[in-house]
Design a binder for these strands. Structure first.
Lengths: 340, 340
DNA sequence: CTGAAAGCGCTTACAG
DNA sequence: CTGAAAGCGCTTACAG
């Protein structure tokens, strides 16, 4: 359909009813599906809809249904951070993919990292949206988990601690991913395997450390080589220097993010330490950073677009009044490249 | 209490009218401002609004006004590209800043680079939004300029060629920025000043080249040193090699993007050519790339957030039925750092 | 299976 | 300056 065709004066349900020779109620039933309408009536109504180019008026529909048919995308992050992060890009892509097939529109609500403004909260709770998707690295903010008490909300990533009422969220299996990464290092014969962990107050940081520890313990290896970074490249470099100072015999490193892995590798290279033969490195994320350096990074892939899609579908199910599990954990996958 | 019950409990205009002892018409006038209402009546209505926590119902308002009170943010770019580009981040931030003070909500419409889907077009022209903001590097796409014929639309960046009807757009003064950059190189005593230009089919590419040429001609210098890149770092590096091969006596380079400048500088460094004493380099954008390398880049700052804000304000004025200039050109500013 | 009718919660001429 | 009334374009019990 071209723009020119869509431009005609908007026909109403009333016009369709007149054209099809039925009542407005019947047209409404056909448009919304489900209800019992005789097949030939359905056909003639659809023909009228088609020939008139009828599109339901959202405002009228919302008013009558007492639902806005809108979903908020709440982003409690600095704008530049949000837009600079491919992880968010993938999640949003997944969300829009799922929503394109629905009757819902996505309303963008940027917020500061400290949470949505009073204005935003008024908006969100003022009946302007039927539900919200919160995408952030700070999903566990109090002001946001509270939102879940008044409005159907789905978060990306588990909350730091269980909330009351329990939140709905989609997460990736960070622990299993980290475990697979560490298992891979072990299978390579590495015995002194360090972790450059994430922050201790962020669920992905915590869970990835858990997985690393689990793998080492199963292999009866020690879990003493742990340093925390902030998920950034600079943080990874600093952490690598600390690890090397603590124990020069390290032969494997699992970094809880690709960026930290990349920082660690630059330190190893500067010291002339061979990757992977002397020290093997595995990252996490499978982001662009994994393949943009001179050494292709072995890393844990997380299905971010799928996570976004799953979040949207979960929310829609919730809005339909269906029974929905509070958490949905998606699998990760180890991608073996050159660094380990 | 369920969500539905909560929503039913939301106070209506009717309730406010009853509490204030006036008619619905009067409450409506107070809420929407403008109309003549006696001050003491205004006060008592506002008191009732306050005490009941009244928030107007968007759907009802939209239906009665026959306006959706929604604005689409149309993004005809690959998602990863859009989210990976700080330029877009700034524009979106400006847009949301302006819209936060308005009654409009921003509806996200991702589209492919080739333009919005049939579904999207149906949505945009189906009365679901009152106007659209198109943010992209491909604003001049035919399908999108035609959108402007049926719906108020504001673009970022001028169209490649004048459109019919003329488009509304906000642009930065690319030519003046490039001219200032080149003037700066000239003032430094440089005489063999090359340009690593942008693509010839993109307005910013064209306009920045125009500014470079203008400055050189005014200084009676030759404009023969021109090579085109694709705005990327790799493109800048390739272009720099070509320039050096063509004329080793080059002493100044204006690159039409920071990324290209950064690629050019890496080539200069590899060849042991000193920056800025042997070859001075100026970029364009003042993006993160300008300050993330080892040499701080002298570059042209463009006010992207302001551009977004201006786009939103322009559209709102248009929707108010005000007379609006078709183009708004924002000034750029040279930021002198270390590379020139 | 289908239709008549009563809303959903606002805005806005039209009177007064 | 204010109110009564007629919509805006849908949905949804309620009858039949």
């Amino acid at each position: 359909m071209t723009i020119d065709q869509a431009r005609r004066a908007a026909p109403t349900l009333e016009a369709v009813a007149a054209a099809a020779g039925v009542s407005r109620s019947t047209v409404s039933r056909v448009v919304n599906g489900g209800a019992q309408v005789k097949p030939d009536v359905v056909a003639s109504v659809n023909a009228a809809i088609e020939s008139l180019g009828y599109i339901p008026n959202r405002a009228a529909r919302s008013l009558a249904r007492r639902r806005s048919m809108a979903i908020a995308l709440v982003v409690p992050e600095e704008t530049t951070r949000f837009f600079g992060d491919p992880y968010f890009a993938e999640i949003v892509r997944g969300i829009t993919t799922a929503l394109d097939d629905s009757e819902y529109v996505l309303v963008l609500q940027l917020a500061s990292a400290s949470g949505p403004s009073a204005n935003s909260i008024r908006y969100l709770l003022g009946g302007n949206v039927d539900g919200a998707l919160v995408v952030s690295h700070h999903s566990s903010d109090t002001s946001l988990t509270r939102l879940g008490a008044s409005l159907p909300v789905v978060f990306n990533g588990r909350p730091l601690a269980p909330t009351d009422p329990p939140s709905y969220f989609v997460d990736v299996d960070n622990a299993a991913g980290a475990e697979a990464a560490t298992d891979h290092l072990i299978s390579l014969g590495r015995r002194r395997i360090a972790i450059i962990a994430g922050p201790e107050d962020m669920p992905p940081g915590i869970d990835r450390t858990t997985g690393w520890r689990r793998a080492l313990q199963r292999a009866s290896l020690t879990t003493d080589l742990i340093v925390h970074g902030d998920f950034s490249q600079a943080g990874g470099a600093t952490a690598m220097r600390q690890l090397l100072a603590a124990d020069p015999s390290i032969d494997g490193v699992f970094a809880a993010s690709d960026l930290m892995a990349s920082g660690a590798m630059s330190v190893l290279r500067d010291r002339g330490i061979g990757i992977p033969h002397e020290v093997a490195v595995v990252g996490f994320d499978d982001s662009r950073a994994a393949t943009s350096g001179s050494i292709q990074l072995t890393t844990v892939h997380q299905p971010s677009a799928l996570a976004g899609e799953t979040m949207a579908k979960m929310l829609i199910a919730l809005l339909r009044g269906e029974q929905v599990e509070h958490e949905r954990i998606l699998p990760t996958r180890l991608v073996v490249r050159d660094s380990a």
